[in-house]
Simulated scan of single mutants.
Amino acid sequence: MLPVLHGDVSAAARALLRAPVDGRGRLCRRMIGEAAQACAHVRKTGSLHPLYGNGSLMSAARKRELADEPSFDDPEYCQCFEMVLREITLFRISPKRS
């Protein structure tokens, strides 16, 4: 996966806002996995992944319908944003990636 910037986290959180609450964790991990898969594809072929884009989390998230971006006054958005950060951290430290 490409380096994660604020816009990546925001796009992923906005995708999560559109998803059912009980499926958000699974969707978050899926988007991160898609970004990683796309990044590997780009490195190997020099071409965008046909489904997941350029390897950024934003590209993977934008394959879904995104909610309008709320402010951090919205507790549900904050929970989604936090989930994305947590799952990125877990992905980065996963022994499977070593």
Rank of each mutant, 00 (worst) to 15 (best):
V21W: 14
N54I: 03
R30C: 04
R62L: 03
A38Y: 00
P50N: 06
N54R: 12
R24N: 05
D74M: 10
I32V: 06
E87T: 02
N54V: 04
R62W: 01
S71T: 15
A12F: 00
R92N: 09
E76Y: 09
I88M: 06
R29G: 01
S10T: 15
R26T: 15
D73P: 02
A19D: 08
L48T: 02
A13W: 00
Q79A: 15
L16W: 03
D73Q: 10
P70M: 11
R92E: 10
A61D: 02
A19S: 09
P20H: 09
E82F: 10
R29H: 03
D68H: 09
L16F: 04
A11D: 00
L17W: 02
F72A: 06
R86M: 15
A13I: 02
R26I: 13
R24M: 11
R29N: 03
A19M: 12
I88H: 03
R14Y: 02
G25L: 14
A12W: 00
R18C: 12
R18A: 12
R29C: 01
A11T: 01
S71H: 12
C78F: 07
G23V: 12
A38G: 04
V84R: 01
E76Q: 14
C28L: 01
R18M: 13
D22V: 13
E69C: 12
L90K: 12
S59M: 02
S56A: 11
A38K: 01
D74N: 14
S47Q: 11
M83W: 02
L48V: 03
A67T: 07
M58W: 05
A19F: 07
L90T: 11
C80R: 06
D74E: 10
R92L: 14
H49K: 05
R29T: 01
A35H: 00
Q37S: 12
R62F: 02
E34L: 08
S71R: 15
S71G: 08
G33T: 05
C78N: 14
L17R: 09
